[in-house]
Write a protein that binds this DNA or RNA. Sequence first.
DNA 1: GCCATTACTTACATATTTGATAGTTCCCTA
DNA 2: TAGGGAACTATCAAATATGTAAGTAATGGC
Lengths: 123, 123
Amino acid sequence: MAARKENSTYSRNEKNLVECDLTYAINKIGGRWKLQILSELESGKQRFGDLSKKFPFVTERMLTLQLRALEQDGLVKRTVYAEIPPRVEYALTEMAIELGPLLKQLSDWGSRHRHHILKVAAM
Amino acid sequence: MAARKENSTYSRNEKNLVECDLTYAINKIGGRWKLQILSELESGKQRFGDLSKKFPFVTERMLTLQLRALEQDGLVKRTVYAEIPPRVEYALTEMAIELGPLLKQLSDWGSRHRHHILKVAAM
DNA sequence: GCCATTACTTACATATTTGATAGTTCCCTA
DNA sequence: TAGGGAACTATCAAATATGTAAGTAATGGC
């Protein structure tokens, strides 16, 4: 989340993988709350405060950071209304909307196997 | 990757989300190299050394940790052959195989938008 | 004037993840 | 009998990610 030091092994590793589409994608969506936020925004644009209420366990700081990162990566559009008190709305971009089906499938996969495990554990 | 301290905010947050299928799924696949490893194993079982060669920028330690986590989560099956020198093979489980199409889509998505960005940047 | 509101930002402290490096084990081969 | 191979494990030191607490700005309502 913080700026990564040039030339740390961390960033060298990342550069090594820039050729891989999968890794490229993973880097864009691989933050602590990014997918959850995207999923939440699928139902339509929302204000910062709304999101914050939806994720009470995510600190404002974290929410801000994740939203900023998503914005940087072109997955979320941020609109500021010059009002007092301020109003800021977040919406998915086209690119992010395309991820919708994927999120659905991932969620379904989670659902399927979560239940499976519960069943097994009950035996 | 290391044991998480009980009751750290980190783990409290995680508990809060146990009800969400999406989050459940994300937690299983959200390691530094997990998806890449799964993707690599789609072509068939492979030995530790093979994987290590495929990912030269991933240290053995990291590879071990990621594989262990995947094993724990039931995504990878580990088979040890009692030979000298040792031989260990890793293969996807059913659950992981189901993720295949998803990985493909994610990769395609990455590919699509990577090129888009390159085009834009060139203008 | 004083407070509430909203969407942050800043500074500092912890927690967690990853890397670097060295060492282990056991047999087989030269 | 020294060395090599495979798949790790252990330990310590970075680096990164996240949490906590407090503060900011501008304005309308009291």
